[in-house]
Design a protein around this nucleic acid. Structure first.
Lengths: 160, 160
DNA sequence: AGAATTGTGTCAACAAAGCTGACATGTCTT
DNA sequence: AAGACATGTCAGCTTTGTTGACACAATTCT
């Protein structure tokens, strides 16, 4: 699809692929492709449920950390409460997530996945997990530790 | 922020953090956080330009592969031409990207970044590149090769 | 030469998921 | 009692994705 001959000589005196020795375009790009395809994995399942990627993230994190509050979730997702409210309400109404009034602080709503929510979270994570396992296996022994450390270092540490 | 005491005993007989030995929730999550913060880097610059992340991606890829056609770009971004048209038009009108009629096939529009487009692409990539360099340095020697191979393995190989 | 296909542009309508601002309610905290 | 806090909700807006339809020029096929 990108195989047409291109006479770019009038614009590029160098090579077609523009490389910059001071900017790591390569890893930037690989991250984009990797994440694009990684997030594409659960799409088929999401379409069946009638949910989107926003719902996916909510179910995932509530499932991972049962009892987290709405504020915790907002902090994790870094979105506004109005944005969260939309998808969270749908998930609660559909029976995937339930809320429990905080036993210490009754203002809080502790979030839990239902049986159905757990099943959904698992089904969505499954193809992604397989992709990761395959990629790590192909990359070689010790890859998991290195990749894990890299990813930890990539995310913001302070305002967490 | 997540430090409140939570009596989840009535729902979780296990630990608070739900682990699943068959699903790699850990890397899935780390990928989310890493990518979330990684894409947040250029936001300040984008706000100044009045552009969004869609514009960022277009400028990036056109800058990386000068002379790519509209079809190439659609294939790379995996979005519809109507979606692309919107942001591409704005970038052309603003003088960041220019089109040249294909010398072999006059139906094609070869895309090039202008001087301003190159400067923008570079400015946007700079904080991301720094983040990657820092993360790789902290991860240790040889990290770049391993991470690169992992990312290549993570993306789809076939329909590329 | 004429027909079909291809690459690109564009109109119109719609959906998902983000945003801001404002306000209500109940629950702490002081 | 007053103020701060956690959550929910209404209303409206933006960005960025989608489908479907159509136009036009250029290329390719028969």
């Amino acid at each position: 699809m990108a195989g047409q001959s291109r006479d770019t000589s009038q614009f590029m005196t160098e090579v077609a692929r523009k490389d910059d020795d001071t900017i790591d375009f390569e890893i930037i790009e690989l991250l984009f492709f990797a994440y694009r395809d990684f997030t594409g994995d659960p799409d088929a399942i999401l379409e069946k449920s009638g949910f989107g990627r926003a719902h996916h993230r909510v179910v995932h994190f509530v499932n991972r950390e049962p009892g987290m509050t709405v504020a915790d979730l907002l902090d994790t997702l870094k979105i506004t409460k109005q944005s969260l409210a939309r998808v969270l309400k749908q998930l609660i109404d559909s029976g995937y997530i339930r809320q429990v009034t905080g036993p210490e602080d009754r203002r809080q709503r502790m979030l839990y996945t239902t049986k159905e929510g757990q099943a959904l979270a698992r089904a969505l994570a499954e193809p992604q997990s397989r992709r990761i396992a395959d990629a790590l296996a192909k990359t070689g022994p010790g890859a998991r530790e290195t990749v894990k450390r890299f990813l930890v270092n990539m995310k913001n540490s302070a305002a967490d």
